[in-house]
Design a protein around this nucleic acid. Structure first.
Lengths: 144, 144
DNA sequence: GCCCATTTGTCCGTATGTATA
DNA sequence: TTATACATACGGACAAATGGG
């Protein structure tokens, strides 16, 4: 499972192993992981190494951690459709701590920035999908 | 500067202090920070606390770190305009390590997902802006 | 090309605090 | 209240990459 001789950082090996089990669905959304100490014992590494691996997964938005509880696979939230009509530009960046707090976002979730009509709107990317419609557009011909 | 009695985690205080100096432009894009040891000495905390604070800023996409060099404020990249014609849905998430590698993305930069015309395209959010044009739209710039 | 000081990265250990159940 | 579990903080040690001389 964990190869101490491979030269690959142990915390990355821990993160990689867990990520695979999460993305394949072996560990379902909402399910709890083993405790940090248990993972450390199973993998034969220190708890700090496990914590560093979990930090990686948190920043990827794969798990959420709450003090006193085992870390759990992040649940998918219902996606709200936000429509914009006419010329608009959309990009994304990570939120500031203030923005994370304001929108109640967990770690590892980007912020969507929609600029249209002279204003700018911000949306948490795990709950919002931006639907861009050109004015009087028909449904035909996308890019590529 | 750093208050050991405030109850606010020291590494967050370090991150907050540096974030403010970065976002206000006091430390310009591309400029190097002090070394971790120097920051630790200045702030009166351990190097591990400083490293944890820098990890926060990295995951926010504010700084980039390279082994052997001091961490530096992330430079803004020229933004490529990707235009879409017809209805499109745009969202964002953090990239997997494989995707980060494929696109040459640094830490703390989200991935833009554009679904249009039955397909899905991926773009690094620090280099690409998705544009929806109203009339006579043309598609400039291609996928990578 | 090579050494050397600097600097960040990895890993371990210990201790303590604090939230959860 | 108690046990579990995650969070914070410090310390030391060594590895690996950078950049200058």
């Amino acid at each position: 499972m964990i190869d101490h001789e491979s030269g690959i950082p142990l915390y990355l090996q821990v993160a990689d192993a867990l990520r695979k089990r999460i993305t394949t669905g072996e560990i379902a959304a909402g399910a709890e992981l083993l405790s940090e100490s248990e993972i450390a014992a199973v993998c034969g590494v220190s708890r700090e190494v496990v914590r560093k691996g979990l930090t990686v997964l948190r920043s990827e938005g794969l798990i959420v951690s709450v003090r006193g509880r085992r870390s759990a696979v992040r649940r998918e939230l219902p996606v709200e459709q936000v429509s914009v009509v006419g010329p608009a530009r959309v990009t994304a960046r990570m939120p500031t701590p203030v923005e994370r707090d304001r929108f109640g976002m967990v770690e590892g979730v980007p912020l969507l920035l929609v600029r249209a009509g002279g204003g700018e709107m911000l949306y948490p990317a795990d709950r919002v999908e931006v639907c861009m419609l050109s004015h009087g557009a028909e449904t035909r011909g996308g890019p590529r």
